[in-house]
Amino acid sequence: MSNWTRNTKKIGELATGHELTIPVYRFAGTDSNAPRVYIQANVHGAEVQGNAVIFQLMKQLEKLELQGDITLVPLANPLGINQKSGEFTLGRFDPITGVNWNREYQDLTPSLSDWFEAHKHLPTEQFIAAYRQSLLNSCHQQLDSPWGVTTGRRLALSLQLMAHEADIVLDLHTGPKSCKHLYCPEYTRDAAGLFSIPCVLMMPNEFGGAMDEAAFYPWWQLTDYVVSRGMTMTPAVEAYTLELGSQERIDMQDAADDCEGILAFLANRGVIKADIEPKAMARYSCALADYRKFHSPMGGLVEYLAAPGTPLSAGEPLVRILRPDRFGESEQQQTLCLPEDSIPVLHFASASVYQGTELYKVMTKYTRLS
């Protein structure tokens, strides 16, 4: 049986002065040399399924033998979760600034030439520990700025502090109407076959403000710099975004399946002692640059014809757009197709769209992994 604790972490204050807090669960491992893990869910308000996955994970972790420490944070963004309008949850963007909650994380990579010269004499373990501490120090410096930080930035940096303590970071999300898909750094391609996820987007060494990038990008940058100096190094941290289906839904059985996939990954990485094989399934991947958006060429009412996760040949129907204002004209109903083979991954949640609305995101130039 694993030992665990529950604490709360303050991430801000409301206008009334009431504290905003989030729950933090910690499961203790037995081996200080095993990888440490950080898992969070529900940074976007409507993306609730990750909380069910964390719940299923904690039920299993209680019974497993843990080698590495695991920190789990469900309900990571109480402001987003509580941002409702009627029956809908709107919490994708900070309502104060309009910024996407998952684009507030910071690139804390130091000046690598200066940092490397000051620390290159250290043994590998101390070298890695010193770099990790520099990232944590930068987080604290931003949080303690005499100019203050925005509400969204404070939340992001508070979460980022916990993530930078870990060797493995998993950020659990969902799409609007979506199949499961994984954002995976190119240097950890082997992980694509461990999770119970059929579609994989391979990420380059670039930073765009998301949690996974904030976690892996500084280490990938450091690795490339060290290698450029004629030395050998592999990134000490790996981070992934797991998109676990569609938003505004809880499915406990599906959460149990995703839990099993995460446990297979953690067993492979030596975090838990367990014999868990990855789920057999067809898996496909493409480069992030080949993950394309299809925008509506007109306004109207949309029937989504392509099922997320199902390969689609060029010329097959993608959507049908109805224009009741054009009854009796050739434009009253139109079927749109994609110009090349693709795998639809997600589509817009609403059936009524403006011209220019992002209808689908699709994988192009994809390859079969398994």
Rank of each mutant, 00 (worst) to 15 (best):
N3A: 15
T5W: 06
R6E: 15
R6P: 10
E13Q: 14
L20Q: 15
Y25E: 01
R26C: 10
F27V: 02
A28I: 04
T30D: 02
D31C: 01
Y38H: 07
I39H: 01
I54M: 02
F55R: 13
L57Q: 00
M58E: 01
Q67N: 09
L72N: 02
P74N: 07
G80V: 13
I81V: 09
G86T: 09
T89I: 11
L90V: 05
G91M: 09
G91Q: 12
T97S: 15
V99E: 14
N100M: 11
N100C: 11
E104W: 04
E104Y: 04
E104V: 06
D107T: 04
S111D: 15
S113V: 07
S113Q: 08
A118D: 14
H119W: 05
H121E: 15
H121P: 12
E125M: 08
E125W: 05
R132E: 11
N137Q: 11
L143K: 04
G148V: 05
V149Y: 04
T151R: 13
L157S: 08
Q160H: 03
L161Y: 10
H164A: 02
D167S: 09
I168F: 00
H173F: 03
G175R: 04
P176W: 04
K177F: 08
L182S: 10
E186Y: 12
G193W: 02
M202C: 10
P204W: 03
M211R: 03
F216Y: 15
M231D: 09
M231V: 06
M233P: 11
A239I: 01
Y240Q: 04
L242H: 08
Q253S: 14
G261K: 02
L263A: 02
F265D: 00
N268C: 06
N268L: 00
R269K: 14
G270N: 06
V271G: 00
M281E: 13
M281V: 12
R283T: 05
A287R: 11
D290N: 14
D290Y: 07
R292M: 01
A307W: 03
T310L: 02
P311D: 08
V319K: 04
R320E: 11
R323S: 14
E329T: 14
Q332V: 07
Q333H: 01
L336E: 02
C337Y: 05
P339S: 06
S342I: 08
L346G: 11
H347L: 05
A351G: 14
Y360W: 09
M363L: 12
T364E: 13
Y366R: 14
R368V: 09
R368Q: 11
R368G: 03
L369I: 10
L369N: 02
